[in-house]
């Protein structure tokens, strides 16, 4: 009898050790942080005085927008439907290398593939390892100090945080939450919350490095959700200058090289050729109205579209945790972080 019990002791021990390590590691990473208290204004000043110019790190973006998920198998992930959804869902791990304002490298690490954005001075290379394409563009001289012009993607938590902070006005309530730890660094949690109550977003949480003032993570919380619906955060960060040869990109042999000229106007408006849009309202519950166009018709005629949207009176609604998009039957598109009813009301009033 004793022997029967004894023989399972190693199994019990192994289970206990594995379980305790699995529990202890996240607990240690989130161990309570106690920083000197700061007012929201002081944290904002800390961000403003941040002088971090060189760093490298790993960034993780994840979104739980409530869209249907398709299998993303190792080799089958390239099907058009699931790749379209992965763009919408936008979850990835990327490495970021920044050397001053002029040299950056951004590597999105897909499974057995990689997408790179290399910016060195006025040269910008976009490299896609699975499509075997390299696109070269030259920035106009005046925009050297600007951020890398990749349409639609915010690259580092710092850049995304700056955008939210710049937009914060009287409709926003700014508070400081409990001190946290991001990428092994202690941080203040700056919380931007809309004063209006009819938005889908309940708050935006920005973790600000207590030492350097660099925003380390940005999380968007939807009403009624505990986990962030969208988050962009460093999982590791080094404040050393990255190796210089990372920014020298020469397209490898066997790759289709495209030259692209960037007109000045495109840089100012990343959405470039999009049709003229109007914005109804201001602040968090503003509604964007796009007039009917051929691009929208192409989009709405795809079979995936009817899978993703729900039929309502007067059109179809794409519902996500943070944004609702109303495709009116007359071809207009209305989008905003508000309820579908408000979108319909705006559509019918104009």
């Amino acid at each position: 009898m004793n022997r029967l019990v004894l023989r399972w002791v190693p199994t019990a021990l192994a289970t206990a050790v594995i379980a305790s390590v699995a529990i202890a590691v996240p607990v240690a990473a989130n161990a309570a942080v106690d920083l000197p208290a700061k007012t929201p204004q002081q944290v904002l000043e800390l961000v403003g005085q941040s002088s971090v110019k060189d760093f490298s790190g790993t960034v993780e973006q994840s979104s739980k927008l409530g869209l249907p998920a398709l299998p993303m198998t190792g080799t089958g992930a390239n099907s058009s439907a699931s790749s379209a959804l992965s763009v919408l869902a936008g979850s990835y791990t990327a490495r970021v290398y920044v050397d001053g304002a002029t040299r950056t490298r951004f590597q999105i690490m897909d499974k057995l593939a990689e997408r790179d954005v290399v910016k060195n001075g006025s040269d910008v290379w976009l490299y896609d390892s699975s499509a075997k394409t390299a696109t070269h563009s030259t920035l106009p001289a005046s925009t050297h100090d600007g951020s890398v012009p990749t349409p639609g993607t915010e690259q580092t938590p710092a850049q995304l945080a700056q955008r939210f902070l710049a937009a914060a006005d009287s409709t926003t309530k700014v508070t400081v939450g409990a001190d946290t730890r991001v990428a092994g660094r202690t941080a203040y949690d700056l919380i931007l919350a809309p004063r209006a109550s009819d938005t889908l977003i309940s708050s935006v949480s920005i973790a600000v490095d207590s030492e350097t003032g660099l925003p380390l993570s940005v999380g968007l919380f939807a009403r009624g959700q505990h986990d962030p619906a969208f988050s962009l955060a460093f999982s590791s960060l080094s404040l050393q200058t990255p190796a210089a040869n990372l920014f020298d990109f020469t397209p490898p042999a066997g790759v289709t090289v495209k030259q692209q000229t960037v007109p000045q106007s495109d840089l100012k408006k990343p959405t470039g050729s999009a049709p003229q849009h109007t914005v109804v309202g201001t602040g968090w519950d503003a509604v964007l109205v796009l007039p009917a166009s051929t691009e929208i018709t192409t989009l709405t005629s795809s079979p995936l579209f009817s899978e993703l949207t729900n039929s309502v009176t007067g059109g179809r609604v794409l519902h996500t945790a943070l944004v609702n998009v109303f495709f009116a039957s007359d071809g207009r598109v209305l989008a905003g972080s508000v309820s579908p009813e408000r979108l319909e009301a705006v559509a019918s009033s104009r």
Binding site: L4, R7, W8, P10, T11, T15, V17
Partner: peptide
């Protein structure tokens, strides 16, 4: 390795 090694020991030892 640790877990299934221990399980294999538990099963095989007796």
């Amino acid at each position: 390795i640790v877990l299934f090694g221990a399980l294999a020991y538990g099963r095989f030892s007796t």
